[in-house]
Design a protein around this nucleic acid. Sequence first.
DNA 1: GTCTATATTACGATAGAC
DNA 2: GTCTATCGTAATATAGAC
Lengths: 200, 200
Amino acid sequence: MTTARRDTYTPETLLTVAVQVFIERGYDGTSMEHLSKAAGISKSSIYHHVTGKEELLRRAVSRALDELFGILDEEHARVGSAAGRLEYVVRRMVEVLMAELPYVTLLLRVRGNTDTERWALERRREFDHRVAALLKDAAAEGDVRADVEVRLATRLVFGMINSIVEWYRPDGPDGRSATGQREVVDAVARLVFGGLRKAS
Amino acid sequence: MTTARRDTYTPETLLTVAVQVFIERGYDGTSMEHLSKAAGISKSSIYHHVTGKEELLRRAVSRALDELFGILDEEHARVGSAAGRLEYVVRRMVEVLMAELPYVTLLLRVRGNTDTERWALERRREFDHRVAALLKDAAAEGDVRADVEVRLATRLVFGMINSIVEWYRPDGPDGRSATGQREVVDAVARLVFGGLRKAS
DNA sequence: GTCTATATTACGATAGAC
DNA sequence: GTCTATCGTAATATAGAC
């Protein structure tokens, strides 16, 4: 409740700046000089808050992963028919992706050059498998088409969802509304479960 | 017909090596040292064939773009109902993506730090618009659902298709068959047009 | 917490011999 | 066409003053 002016950086506030730069220039394409310019402080000041570039990346992808795994613990993802749980998870994935856009964006661009990146890739795979199991159950319960292999379908659905980071931008400060969050969630749910073809 | 030993590099053969390294380490994460190690020749020998790193990137993304735009010139993409042309283009996009996997992979990872990258992004946008126009026509002809906006649907479908580069790997030399090309094309067509839900 | 200055390493690219 | 040697720059990170 202190009216403390937050003019000085913490690892967290620094992270929001760094993540933005990482997204614009790519993680490898971003130097500490770039970060210091964007943050308005010197390189060595950044080292006061974090041990280096990689810690910033680790904090960012950790946040994204925690949010995604959190979905699987929510009640609607644990009770009911597999098809119902699957649809809930798909919708929530889209919501989390938009709510944590910069962090998820970074997570999805990780390639595996460093330990941090390899750890992130492994956790992503684990999440994928959890959702694939859900789809498998839905297929076993007869609610999902059987002419597309479960693993393949999971990958393609993830592809559609994850691609949202390539173009979605939240509403600007001018109030000009971009594509609404609700509209995106509904569109994904419709296309994933019903496809493009007109419902007959 | 000369039985010439191809032991020396040309810009083209060097490209296949470079693209592989770019994909593994990321373009920004790849140094000329990495390339020289992978190619088995020295850094300066690489400069004999190409002017630098960026030329290799330009050659790679150009190839991918040429193949993609080529689809739109094919007969089945120009005649018939919009829905039919759209399905043809979707299937061919998947085929081209798998046939030119490394080049398309690189194209899709371009971020926009250099002139070459910005040029690639612009051409990609142009291709997207061409396909969006096709989907718009299909909607006007009543063959595509009207409750998802055309621009949004196009983006999501592209997302699904493009995501294939994240996991598809052609059959290994050991003959062990990964997911078949035909299977992927069919799966994408089924999901894009029919969705996950069981056909009633 | 922030700065200037700097150590050290790696990078892209070139020169010139073979 | 390929090499070794090297130039100039930019990178990550640290030292130490304020």
